[in-house]
Amino acid sequence: MKLVLGLVIGMAFGAILQLGGASSYKKIMGSLLLKDLDVIKLILMSIAVGTVGIYALDLVDMANMSIKPTYVVGITIAGLIFGVGFAVAGYCPGTCIVAAAEGKTDAVVTILGGLAGALVYALVYPAFKGLIEITNYGEVTFASAFGVNGIWVAIPFSAILFLLMFKVLKDRY
């Protein structure tokens, strides 16, 4: 049952990314070159909607949250590495799956590169564990850090994102 649910949620996820243009090399590079911000705005919109929805669910104890630990140094280095890969491949780990389904062979190669990169990480994991342990603040959120219910952070945060999307970031440059 869980497997079928995964398949259905995944199908919706893939279709939304495809229909929204997030699996397009041109759209992704357009965002990174700050020429066409549609993909960035798509992500901001999903967060603006998602954050309020998740913390509304949390109010009635229905959110199955999964908070990742915040290890500042390791995550910063990881993000810098990921960003280079993002621009060089022109896809991310999810959008290359969708782009591969569209028949783009470069995206298939990105998946293969990803499998190799994940395997390399598994092999060198013992050496990198230290990066996960230093400056690790655990499962901390802007709600837990301020000691307030998440909904009181989610609502103003979402409002800021809407302002960003509709007032600050222009459609075309």
């Binding site: 590495i81 890969g85 993002f86 190669v109 990105t110 590169g113 990803g114 190799a116 990169g117």
Partner: peptide, 10 residues
């Protein structure tokens, strides 16, 4: 595409 994918997943 391959190198980018490897960096992404690492």
């Amino acid at each position: 595409a391959f190198a980018g994918g490897a960096l992404l997943l690492f």
